[in-house]
Simulated assay, not measured.
Amino acid sequence: MIVYRLAAKEYISDKLGTGARLFGGRWNPQGLPCIYTSEHISLALLEKYVHAQSRENMERIALIKIEVPDIDGLIFNTDEKLLKTNWADDISYSQWIGEQILKDLSIIAFTVPSAIIPLERNVIINPLAIKSDLIKFSEPIDFSTDFRLLSRLMK
């Protein structure tokens, strides 16, 4: 499975999930590391955009392609039909689910619906997983965001 991550250039090569560990996220509580990725570059861009506090958060970013081995038992696919109806509005609920999965060190990644586009998936990588060494990170490349998108940010 190929997934994509967009992040500030200074953080793009972090393979330890430091940002998620320090600040928490939709699918992880603070203190538990993970790496947020998306199945598509366009979804990764939308996820980055929706969390941007300013235009600067969308500048000086890089893209990295990550190969997660698609081996039975290593990837957990969250079934959105089993999630609470309002899961996207209940961060403590989604963090609890993510915590349960991240604590199972036999799982290297889990897929979840995107709150932005529920028909598309984000993939959360567990850097603490026993077989995380099977994950292959490409070299990051600079990523430019179209000025038309940036001009709408933080008007």
Score class of each variant (00 low, 15 high):
34 C>R: 04
39 E>M: 02
94 S>E: 01
155 K>L: 11
32 L>T: 15
6 L>Q: 04
101 I>G: 10
85 T>S: 11
144 S>H: 05
92 S>Q: 13
118 P>G: 09
137 F>H: 10
150 L>S: 04
24 G>R: 09
154 M>A: 13
3 V>S: 05
121 R>M: 03
43 L>C: 12
94 S>Y: 08
150 L>T: 00
88 A>H: 13
64 I>C: 07
38 S>Q: 07
47 E>T: 13
130 I>N: 12
42 S>Q: 08
106 S>N: 15
26 R>P: 03
6 L>I: 15
150 L>R: 06
112 V>P: 02
88 A>P: 00
76 F>M: 08
73 G>C: 07
114 S>W: 03
153 L>I: 11
51 H>W: 03
78 T>K: 09
138 S>Q: 14
137 F>G: 04
17 G>L: 13
17 G>I: 09
108 I>R: 01
83 L>C: 00
16 L>H: 14
119 L>T: 14
20 A>C: 14
93 Y>P: 05
2 I>Y: 12
85 T>M: 05
135 I>R: 00
39 E>T: 05
66 I>P: 08
80 E>P: 09
37 T>A: 10
124 I>R: 01
54 S>C: 13
61 I>A: 01
33 P>C: 06
63 L>I: 11
87 W>V: 04
119 L>Q: 13
120 E>H: 10
94 S>N: 05
78 T>M: 14
117 I>F: 03
144 S>D: 14
23 F>T: 12
4 Y>T: 04
75 I>M: 08
41 I>N: 08
122 N>P: 08
128 L>V: 10
33 P>V: 08
86 N>I: 10
79 D>I: 06
133 D>L: 01
43 L>E: 11
87 W>E: 05
95 Q>P: 12
28 N>F: 07
48 K>F: 01
148 R>F: 03
148 R>D: 09
153 L>P: 02
46 L>F: 15
21 R>T: 03
104 D>E: 14
6 L>N: 09
44 A>E: 05
148 R>E: 10
98 G>H: 08
122 N>L: 04
33 P>K: 06
93 Y>C: 04
139 E>L: 02
78 T>R: 01
92 S>N: 13
17 G>N: 14
122 N>G: 08
67 E>I: 03
139 E>M: 05
37 T>W: 08
138 S>F: 07
101 I>A: 05
19 G>S: 15
52 A>C: 11
46 L>A: 15
133 D>A: 06
15 K>R: 15
60 R>T: 04
92 S>P: 00
114 S>P: 07
16 L>P: 00
67 E>Y: 08
150 L>E: 02
36 Y>K: 10
3 V>W: 00
146 D>M: 07
142 D>C: 02
142 D>N: 14
105 L>M: 03
16 L>D: 10
31 G>F: 12
7 A>V: 00
36 Y>N: 10
54 S>I: 06
55 R>Q: 14
89 D>S: 10
131 K>P: 01
62 A>G: 10
